[in-house]
């Protein structure tokens, strides 16, 4: 199951050229660009690990792409996303976030149905990948 989240989630995965143009847009706006990675695909997992420090003082996207290449080399089998933080007064929030890397195999989610009081049903989803310990989830 191909997981999507953030901006451009309705599009096919961006090429490096397209990613670079997006990064350049963020840098030109003065936003801090972050590279984050995780191997827990649950949509409510908001705490991803950061790759290096936020990059806010680069004039050109090539610097970010260099870091991204390095991150992909180390964590090729994890989800990697780029996000850009606008520190402008009144915003102080993430303005853009999109996936730039995904594991080769994405097993998807299991749906749990829990029968509660009365005939109520509670639903919850668990990623199959999350059954394995962190760091070894997408080893294949």
């Amino acid at each position: 199951m191909r997981i999507t989240q953030g901006c451009f989630s309705f599009l096919p995965d961006l090429t490096d050229g397209q990613i670079s143009r997006q990064v350049q847009y963020c840098l030109d706006k003065g936003w801090a660009v972050n590279i984050e990675f995780t191997d827990d695909p649950h949509p409510r997992n908001t705490f991803w690990d950061m790759w290096g420090l936020p990059m806010f003082d680069l004039p050109d996207a090539a610097g970010v792409m260099m870091e991204l290449a390095e991150c992909r080399r180390v964590y090729a089998d994890r989800y990697i996303r780029l996000s850009a933080f606008d520190s402008g007064h009144g915003w102080e929030s993430v303005k853009i976030s999109f996936l730039v890397n995904r594991p080769k195999e994405e097993p998807g989610f299991r749906l749990h149905r829990e029968e509660a009081a009365g005939r109520a049903l509670r639903y919850t989803t668990t990623a199959y990948a999350a059954d394995r310990p962190e760091g070894r989830r997408y080893e294949g």
């Binding site: 990059m55 680069l58 004039p59 050109d60 996207a61 090539a62 610097g63 970010v64 260099m66 870091e67």
Partner: peptide
């Protein structure tokens, strides 16, 4: 060194 190189990219 990498930090400096990243800053110099494009220039």
């Amino acid at each position: 060194t990498k930090e400096i190189l990243k800053k110099a990219m494009g220039g």
